[in-house]
Design a protein around this nucleic acid. Structure first.
Length: 222
DNA sequence: GCGACAG
DNA sequence: ATCTTGTCGC
């Protein structure tokens, strides 16, 4: 039989898929006050293995509710712009597991960009569309787009002439690039993110917890 | 061709 | 992302 014949990652097809799926992204506003559960997701690596974590966070009490982690092989390479094909499976897997075992998310916070992306379909949008959930992209570096001041003098991220997100900083000057993933507005994404961010830390609370969990669990894989 | 390039 | 010891600073 045809054993161990691996096809390599076709980034041309992957890019076309992103262009198609980007048409499904919604910017419809949501009611921020109605958000109770924020689920943050991140991925860590150990050789060819990856650990995907999903952390449920109580937006009102501002504390973790529960979390889950799953491990699997990572066989797609990292290519800027195509991060979702490498990490989204672990993230959606962890989020579904969390939903089945603990609580379902009202909004998902992803470590990576949303529509501040060359094809308007970063990993946060990918996850939002796949799960049909409102989602927010949070990244530590800008991938695509330009920074301009909006009418309220906030630093906005502009792609194709429209605002898709904002830059926010902690008390130490560390930046975070926030963008729409799916089913919310740039302003919704900004408000939600700032409402759960203890700015003494580098990332909004839910993601910071997920990020730390990722590093902690990474050393336990083998 | 050159430089840029999430995690 | 990950590889990595000590070291500067609050």
């Amino acid at each position: 039989m045809c054993l161990t014949i691996k096809k390599r990652f076709d980034y041309i097809v992957a890019q076309k898929l992103q262009l198609e799926l980007s048409k499904l992204v919604s910017f419809e506003p949501i009611e921020v006050q109605d958000i109770e559960v924020i689920v943050a997701t991140d991925v860590g690596y150990k050789g060819s293995k990856g650990v995907g974590v999903a952390v449920a966070y109580d937006a009102e009490k501002r504390r973790e509710i529960c979390h889950v982690a799953i491990v699997d092989d990572i066989d797609i390479p990292y290519v800027p712009g195509l991060l979702a094909f490498r990490e989204a499976p672990l993230m959606t897997g962890a989020i579904k597991e969390l939903s089945a075992r603990c609580v379902d998310a009202d909004v998902v916070m992803v470590n990576g960009h949303g529509v501040s992306h060359p094809r308007k379909f970063g990993i946060a949008s990918h996850i939002g569309v796949v799960l049909d959930k409102p989602s927010i992209g949070i990244a530590k570096k800008l991938l695509y787009g330009s920074i301009v001041l909006d009418d309220k003098r906030r630093e906005a991220i502009v792609v194709d002439g429209s605002i898709v997100g904002y830059v926010a900083k902690n008390i130490h000057g560390g930046s975070v690039y926030i963008s729409v993933g799916h089913r919310l507005t740039p302003e919704n994404a900004l408000i939600i993110t700032e409402s759960v961010w203890n700015k003494h830390y580098p990332l909004p609370d839910p993601l910071y917890i997920a990020d730390n969990l990722t590093k902690k669990l990474r050393s336990k894989i083998r």
